[in-house]
């Protein structure tokens, strides 16, 4: 596989995305909501009296899980434009006629969905860290982030969740004939990840280093399995004849 070829496809998609307001708003809006608006709402709805630092720390760990499912949601929006958008613009046929291999095409398209999603997640996460630290410094004269839990999410869980979402969207896009079906099925990828947040919120699961490493391991295995499936499924003939 020639990485520079994949990069041409990815940069082409970036150029198209830049012109698509829906994608831009999603990339900016979603991290903004989860990294700033939700934490601000939670912080300012806390009781006016001091709450124990351990409780606040546990809340922040739970809020950290936002950054597992944000990178899973964003590729759903981007990938549906990236792959199905090609079909909508009827640009797949000339693209598939170029001297690019299936792997280059798959990797380039995946990169185009992965990079903006993870970048938006990281930027949102940095905003989250700054906001949380300002608050905790004001209230407790200490800073809680970055923590080991946050670092594991940023280093492993977030990119792995993002890759999982990209792969699932590739598979769905090449299997279904309908754009809306592709988007809706692709969106289902976040359900297990939202479940993690819900379990943490209801104290059934504790978000600590070990649980995050366990989640990351599961994501890694799922990514590897889906990588092989997507490579088998992503064949230009299939795409051309089935993407109607």
């Amino acid at each position: 596989m020639r990485l520079w070829k994949a990069w041409i496809i990815a940069t082409k998609d970036f150029s198209v995305f830049r012109k698509n307001k829906y994608i831009l708003y999603s990339l900016v809006g979603m991290p903004l909501v989860f990294a700033l608006i939700v934490p601000i709402t939670i912080f300012y709805s806390l009781p006016t009296g001091q709450i124990p630092l351990e409780v606040l720390s546990s809340m922040i760990n739970t809020m950290n899980t936002f950054f597992i499912f944000i990178p899973a949601i964003l590729p759903t929006i981007i990938a549906s434009y990236s792959f199905v958008g090609e079909k909508l613009e009827k640009s797949l046929e000339p693209l598939l006629a170029t001297p690019t291999t299936d792997s280059e095409l798959l990797f380039g398209k995946s990169l185009a969905a992965f990079l903006p999603s993870i970048l938006a997640t990281y930027i949102g996460s940095i905003g989250f860290v700054i906001f949380v630290d300002m608050e905790t410094y004001n209230r407790f004269n200490t800073i809680l982030l970055p923590s080991w839990e946050w670092a594991i999410i940023m280093a492993f869980a977030a990119p792995l969740a993002c890759i999982l979402s990209v792969e699932i969207n590739v598979i769905i896009s090449s299997r279904v004939n309908d754009v809306r079906a592709a988007q809706q099925l692709g969106g289902l990828v976040i359900l297990p990840l939202v479940l993690i947040f819900s379990l943490a919120q209801s104290k059934i699961v504790t978000i600590d280093i070990f649980s995050l490493l366990f989640i990351s391991s599961i994501l890694l295995v799922a990514d590897m399995v889906l990588y092989y499936i997507s490579r088998i499924i992503f064949q230009r003939e299939e795409i051309l004849t089935k993407w109607k």
Partner: peptide
């Protein structure tokens, strides 16, 4: 080979120059 398919399949949001430049790069 060069292919002109039945549907032109251009990237409508991009300029004519950019459309051609992308393909020229893909064709090495």
């Amino acid at each position: 080979i060069g292919l002109l398919p039945e549907n032109v399949g251009l990237y409508e949001s991009l300029s004519a120059y950019k459309n051609l430049d992308i393909y020229a790069r893909l064709y090495e």
